[in-house]
Write a protein that binds this DNA or RNA. Structure first.
Lengths: 243, 243
DNA sequence: ACCTGAACACCGTTCAAGT
DNA sequence: ACCTGAACACCGTTCAAGT
């Protein structure tokens, strides 16, 4: 791996001491993101990060009390980045809006595994800044649902149900990604057929024709999305009938 | 912690060598489950497990090539245990059946964090045995939906959508559980109010009245369940109309 | 105030023995 | 065939310096 220009790299045995103000929380988190994006969050370790930054390991501890505190900071930045990357959709009616929104929501996590690992698989945001960003976005989305006629409680839960479902799909996708990829395209169905005896499992032996290994493909996701939005339509009709 | 009777315990400095056939895959996985159940999956380490069993660390490596192989075996057993613990429901119509089933599904994971960590947060099952158990259960559930009138493809996806949603809720619950519990009962709403300015976020400042910290409470879960089942009802009506 | 290496307790794993 | 400790490379973190 050739050292890239314009970047602080591990000095090859050079024992130059870093100047005083050369390090900062920002540089550390930036380096950590680079590491996570290229190697995955599991590969982030304090010694590795220090080497990547060309710093002594313990220097990082001046800026972050622990690795966990560093990860919290990364999660917070990831949350901000995520809300910034999410496009805004305008002019759609509520059901099509939700569909577009959560389709993008899922795509974003799948295309940015670093954000996925930090946001989906880690504890909830704590910082004021991250929450403010997040709620700013929620304000838009929930208002949209309220304007469409959803009572406040139903609007909140509509968003949350879809959010939990979408994150569940992303999690599924991620777990299957880290466990070795499926080998041949049709290998999955064959290996399923091996454990399904048509005599004792007549339904399953037909069901596997509609099977995808992860159940987190684009099509799988779309079907669940449709189901949930159909359910919300029903609830909206009932709510309108009541008022 | 007093040593429990009838259990192989760490010998207090005793350097007695274990007899030949005294260890086994079964004893190791049993000890590992005990450790996971009492300490959590993060606390499982090879040295700890060895100490718990009163064995040299390296003895474990005779039975499992690596920690990962051990975890795979644990995951497999957890999957079998899970399907055995899931009650069977009889005599309900399809929508009530799904509600009961996934309610129990979620409860089981919440009440058995060890199973949750191994199944929900780890890679998919690989072994024949686990798959056979799992598909046996799926046979029942999908047949139920097909008998209710769902086309095969829709039946498969109905189950999977609910399964992804329920696991998403469980994940949420688990993440909030490991990150410190919320302090006061009403503290959450107050801390939310701190970042929500009613002037700029009129909708959110009302929405937080319907807010729960995790969005994975029993009520939250039930609402999403209702939404999804409502959506499935719609699809069933359409499918029946088509045929 | 900021950066550093030495040192500690822990981890997963390998290896060359013991019986 | 099965069990063992010594040893290795790695990790997160602390501490007592250096400048």
């Amino acid at each position: 791996m050739p050292p890239r220009a314009g970047q602080t790299k591990a000095r090859a045995g050079a024992s130059t001491r870093r100047p005083r103000g050369s390090l900062s929380r920002e540089e550390i988190t930036r380096g950590a993101f680079e590491l996570i994006e290229s190697e995955g969050v599991d590969e982030l370790s304090m010694p590795r990060l220090a080497r990547h930054l060309g710093v002594g390991v313990t220097s990082i501890y001046w800026y972050f009390r622990s690795k966990d505190e560093l990860l919290d900071a990364l999660t917070e930045q990831a949350a901000v980045r995520f809300t910034e990357l999410m496009p805004t959709f305008n002019g759609y009616i509520w059901d099509e809006h939700l569909r577009q929104y959560f389709r993008a929501f899922r795509r974003l996590f799948i295309e940015n595994p670093a954000l996925c690992d930090l946001i989906v698989l880690r504890a909830p945001m704590q910082s004021q800044e991250a929450k403010t960003h997040y709620f700013g976005r929620l304000e838009r989305e929930i208002k949209m649902l309220v304007d469409a006629g959803f009572p406040m409680r139903e609007a909140v839960h509509a968003y949350m149900t879809l959010s939990v479902y979408a994150r569940g799909c992303v999690l599924q996708d991620r777990l299957y990604a880290v466990a070795g990829q499926s080998t041949e395209p049709d290998g999955e169905r064959k290996s399923l057929a091996a454990v399904i005896d048509p005599a004792t499992m007549p339904v399953m032996s037909e069901a596997i024709n509609h099977w995808s290994s992860t159940f987190a493909t684009d099509d799988d996701f779309e079907m669940g999305l449709t189901t949930i939005i159909d359910g919300l339509s029903q609830q909206l009709l009932r709510a309108r009938a009541r008022s």
